[in-house]
Every structure is written in structure tokens, then in C-alpha cells.
Design a protein around this nucleic acid. Structure first.
Lengths: 363, 363
DNA sequence: CTGAAAGCGCTAACAA
DNA sequence: TTGTTAGCGCTTTCAG
């Protein structure tokens, strides 16, 4: 399979013509065998396949695309590759692509809508067979262009505002509610929700889920916006203070959990003694941390797999109505959540009197 | 910029011909303006550029590649996307690609040499402008083909056995030595090194670094192979036992650190009371964990950036000798390492009697 | 400096 | 069922 001939000169790459010659058929027949579109006599097919194998021929994807207007490329646009959540989805998508013979082009929007727009436009020129997009905000102007070009588009994890189209996500409202339910069952009545951003719908829905449960108890979540950054030295003053005052916290993203943990350390608050914590996303460090972290586990791999299978169906021409899947999450109970004691509950709202709570429900 | 005309019909995409017509020049001139290869009269250039902008024209990359044999694609092959270490490198590469007008195709070898081989061969058919490869083992047969095709190739993090070629990695021996030095300075003389695999050279070099330091004290590291998997229920019996006996552990990869932590939990060994732990790779959960984890911090982002800039130079024709960069790491001191007491040192070799050590050196 | 024209390797009519 | 042929949109001689 060397690219060099006997004389050391570079061999030109094998083309379909070479295969045709060797198989004793025309290039059209070779094309037909390879594409499987048109019927081909068994004998011819065998000869072609043999020649393909002998020459180690692989179709030139660019030529194929140029002529047919269809490429075996899938384009994925994610908010960032620095947060492991997104690459994990991509891992599943990539595995699907690999299995089904597609290449995956990956672009990061760096959490900036303008970059996202520009990347999608650039990707469009490859006429990818499909797009998998995890938008970085509620606006996705480029969506119109993708849809106008009839390129299948599947959203994963998040969809822009408006009609979701084909979309695989978790059931965010229920997930938020599960977290809140767990905390209320432990006896918490005041929950602080920490979110990196409010401009993404799925995060707003998680808050909504928390709010629904708290409404039963006549309270509302305190919402703290912590920003998209990594784990900073300190959050903005107000956020830092609100976290310091919290008795139960739900962190809506993996990065947020770390931000919260850091802020709690700075505030000298201990988990779960002073404050209970539930994090969205379950990572392998969470069971190992001390205390181990109670988490809402998203089926990340499944999100990716379903996004791919949905996209593939569209690529293969499935028409039907948009498919919007909301996958269930799992609440993984660990050590970071426990019952509040009356003493700890009080400081949250200093105006209220202290109540005495049984400690019996502590694990 | 709609893809629809006034009548709602789909507009065919803008081609170079359209630009030429509008600019009142030939398509060759348009091509020359866009490629910048040949000199073009300023006037013509302006007209072309104006037309390009007006029509929102973008070159068709497949046609361009088909004709010229050069593509603006970079192919990256990584062992997995599930370990955040690799996507972080890719994030930097992707940023570079974006800046310099390349698209990034990502393929995962799933840590299997055969898959790696197959993926590279598939990618070759896109005639990418360059390859960035993080090999999954010491063998990389496909390398010959890449090099024979004159496609620039840069290794990141690891290189296959033999001549490294263009390669950006950390200084593994020194990194291993730093970890060991830190432990010996604390008083440790017995170090257990946990590695996911022995078939990757950079991991072997880290062990070598540890061994060099221990040699000064007349001891040798105990090497435990823990496998590439995630955090399993239990490691193979022998590995589990060796970790349980250790008084100081260096974990050579991020996943290994978690495996070790889990194994130590199962063995009822507490960090750093019973055993000190240093992990390779510094993740945002490590400072937040209790105890926080002492780590060898790799300049992951820099590895990616340098790999890209090196690749870009080759793409642009730089010839010179292979560039092999070994970047320095940082030892980040945290709570998971401390001096051994005699009681803790002893159980390593159960045959020895217990000794009493002062606890004064504990932090 | 610019334009005309010849393909790159492949697919899709169409003819046979 | 198969072969012939005309391009896909671009880059690259080669004349002008």
C-alpha cells in the first residue's frame, strides 16, 4: 500500500478509473457498485469489489460531493470543548459517524453567538449531510439558512427559542423538580439555584422545576447567576454572598458545582453540615470527593447517540414531524445533601423565627 | 442572504462565475484575487472583492480541493473524547484552525490501534492539510502513509516509538521526577506508581522519572497497571492490594487518580493520613476536593496551541528538522500529600514491626 | 495582467 | 444491466 512505485516516484492516488480498468468494467459500473443505487450483475460486482480491494481503493469524497451535492460530513457546533459535557456528547456522535461512514467536523462557538453564526456559515460551504448543534444562546439566526438548504439539523442538550425541531434533551423541568423534591423531603424549604446563565432555555426550565416544587411550600428559589467562566477567585459580590447564605443549593451545570464548592470554601461553609448541595451532571470525581456529591445524572452518552440516530434518519430521508425527546435523569444520592437543622435554616431569613427540625432523617 | 429568490424557489448557491460576472472579470481573475497567488490589478481586485461581498460568496472548498489537491481541513485523531484531557487539547487546536481558516475533522481511535489505523486511512482521502495525532499506542503503522503523502503531521502528548518527528509533549521524565522529589522531600521512600497502561511511552517516561529519584534512596517504584477504563467497581485483585498497601502514590493520568481514590476508599485508607497522593493533570475539581489533590499540572492548552502553530508552519512549507518540544510542568501543592509517619510506612510491608512516629509533621 | 480552456474524480442522465 | 458522456466549481496552464 505504499504510495511509492518501484522506482520511488510518488504513485498518483488510485481513482475509480483504475478500478474500472482492473475490473474490466466502466467507471459507471464501479460507481453503481459502490453506491449501491443501481442494480449491478453479481459477476460485475464481484470483479469490482475485488479490484477495489486489490488496489485499496477509496472513493474521493470531495469529487463525490462536488458532483452529487451530498457529502458524508456531519458538522457539530458546540459551545466549547473545554467543558467535558460537550465532548462527551460528541464522543457518542463521533462513534455513530464512524459506524455509519461519516466524518465529523467539530466547531466551537466559544459561547459567542456571533462566532456560532460565523462557524455555521463556514460549515455550510461543505454542504454537510447534517448538523448537530448545541446552541450557546436562545438566538440562532443561522438556523434559517440551514433549514432553507434542507440540511437536516438536530439540536442536542439545548435548542434555540421557538420551535425546537428535532431535539434531544433531558426533561429539564422534571430534573429541576427532582432536585428540589429531594431537598424538600430532607426538610429544606429554601433553595438557592446557581446557574451559569439565564439566557439558555434549558437552564431556565430547571429553575422552573425547582420553583414548581417550592411553590407547594410557599417559597421561591433564590436564583444566582454565576457566569460561564471556570472557577474564578471570587464570584461577583452579590453571588458570593447569596451562596454564603444558602442552606441548600442546586447547581445547574458541572462548572457551576465547582464554582459553588469554591465559594462555599471561601465562605467557610461546610457541606453538608451547613449547606446541602446537588449538582447537575454526574462526574467521576463526584463519588470520590469528600463529601461525595449528590448529583442529577444526565444520560450524556444517550443524548449523543439519540441525536445521531435522529440525524441519520433525516439524512436518509425520514420526513415526519419534528421529534423532540426529553430524556429522564437520575438522582444520585450521595453525601452532600442532608437535613437542615433549625440553627442552619434560620440565618437564611433572619427575620423568621427558628424552627426545630428532627435530625432523624439525616443519613 | 436568504437562499430563496423572490418567488420562493431555492436559489442555486453563488459560484465563482457569478462573482466574475458581477465584477466584470473572468473567473480566473476571481480565483487569483481570492488565492492571492498571482498579481492582479488593484482595480480588478476591488471589483472582485466588492462582488464577493455583495453576493456573500464563499469559495466551494470541495471544488477547490478537487482541482488543487489541497484542502483546508485539519484532521485530528485522539484516543478518546471521553477523557477531558484530549478535548482540551483539541479546543486549542480548534481555536487555531478557526483563526487560520481551517476546518477540524475529529476522529477517535477508541484506544484501539486498529481503529486508529482505519480512521487515519479514511481521513487521508480528504487529503487534509495536516494531521494532529495523539496515538493510542507505540505503534502507528499509518504514519508511513501520512509521511509518504507529504502531509504534515504533528504529534501531541504522545508520539509512537521511534523518531518522534514534530512533537509537542511535556517533559515526562522531569515531571515524574518532580512528583517523586516532592514525596521524598516529605520523607517518603516507597512510591507506588499507578498507570493506566505501559504501552505508551510518555507514561513509561514518567515512571522513569520517579525511578531516577528513588534510585538516590536505594529504592524502586512499585508499578501498578490499572487499565484505561473509567472508575470500575474494583481493580484487578493485585492492583487493588498494591494500592491498599501503598504509603505514597503517583497516579499517571487523570482517570488513574480517580481509580486510585476509589480504591483507597474501598481499602479504608485515608488521604493524606494513611497515604499521600499526587495526580497527573490538574482539574478544577482537585482544589475543591477534600482533601484537595496535589497535582502535576500539564500546560494542556499550550500543548494544543503549539501543536497547531507547528502544524501550520509545516502546512505553509517550513522544511527544517523535526521540532520536538518538551514543555515543563508545574507541581501544584495541595493537601493530599504529607509526611509519612512510621505507623503508616510500616503496613506497606506487613512483616515489619510497627514503629511510632511523631505526628508533628502532619499538616 | 487577464481570459479561455482543460481538467481534478466522480455521479447521473441517457443510450445502447 | 452497462457504457458514454456531460458537467459539479474550481485552479492552473497557456495564450494574448
Amino acid at each position: 500500500m505504499s504510495l511509492f512505485g518501484e522506482d520511488g516516484a510518488i504513485k498518483p492516488p488510485v481513482t475509480m478509473k483504475d478500478v474500472a480498468n482492473r475490473a474490466g468494467v466502466s467507471i459507471a459500473t464501479v460507481s453503481n457498485v459502490l453506491s449501491g443505487e443501481k442494480p449491478v450483475r453479481a459477476k460485475s460486482r464481484e470483479q469490482v469489489l475485488a479490484a477495489v480491494k486489490a488496489l485499496n481503493y477509496r472513493i474521493n469524497p470531495a469529487a463525490s460531493y462536488l458532483r452529487s451535492g451530498r457529502s458524508k460530513i456531519v458538522a457539530a457546533v458546540v459551545p466549547t470543548l473545554d467543558n467535558p459535557f460537550f465532548p462527551t456528547i460528541l464522543a457518542a456522535v463521533e462513534a455513530g459517524c464512524q459506524k455509519d461512514g461519516y466524518e465529523l467536523i467539530v466547531a466551537s462557538s466559544a459561547n459567542q453567538p456571533e462566532v456560532e453564526e460565523a462557524r455555521i456559515r463556514a460549515l455550510m460551504h461543505w454542504k454537510p449531510a447534517g448538523f448537530i448543534v448545541i446552541p450557546c444562546s436562545g438566538e440562532l439566526p443561522a438556523r434559517k439558512q440551514i433549514e432553507a438548504s434542507k440540511i437536516p439539523l438536530v439540536f442536542a442538550d439545548r435548542a434555540p427559542d421557538g420551535e425546537p425541531g428535532d431535539f434531544v434533551e433531558i426533561d429539564n423541568v422534571t430534573a429541576g423538580a427532582s432536585a428540589a423534591r429531594h431537598l424538600t423531603q430532607l426538610g429544606h424549604r429554601h433553595i438557592t439555584v446557581c446557574t451559569p446563565s439565564l439566557s439558555v432555555r434549558n437552564l431556565r426550565e430547571r429553575i422552573q422545576g425547582v420553583a414548581q416544587v417550592l411553590a407547594e411550600f410557599g417559597t421561591e428559589p433564590v436564583v444566582v447567576e454565576t457566569g460561564l467562566g471556570g472557577v474564578p477567585e471570587a464570584l461577583p459580590g452579590e453571588a458570593e454572598a447569596q451562596i454564603g447564605r444558602a442552606s441548600a443549593i442546586v447547581a445547574l451545570m458541572n462548572t457551576t458545582t465547582l464554582q459553588v464548592l469554591a465559594a462555599l470554601n471561601r465562605a467557610g461553609r461546610s457541606v453538608p453540615h451547613d449547606v446541602s448541595l446537588i449538582g447537575f451532571d454526574d462526574y467521576s470525581w463526584m463519588p470520590v470527593a469528600r463529601p461525595s456529591i449528590t448529583a442529577i445524572r444526565q444520560p450524556v452518552d444517550l443524548i449523543g447517540r439519540l441525536a445521531w440516530s435522529q440525524l441519520l434518519e433525516r439524512i436518509n430521508g425520514a420526513s415526519g414531524a419534528p421529534v423532540h425527546r426529553r430524556l429522564p435523569v437520575e438522582l444520585v444520592l450521595r453525601e452532600s445533601t442532608t437535613s437542615p437543622s433549625a440553627e442552619r435554616e434560620t440565618p437564611v431569613l433572619p427575620t423568621e423565627g427558628a424552627a426545630v427540625l428532627s435530625l432523624a432523617t439525616r443519613r
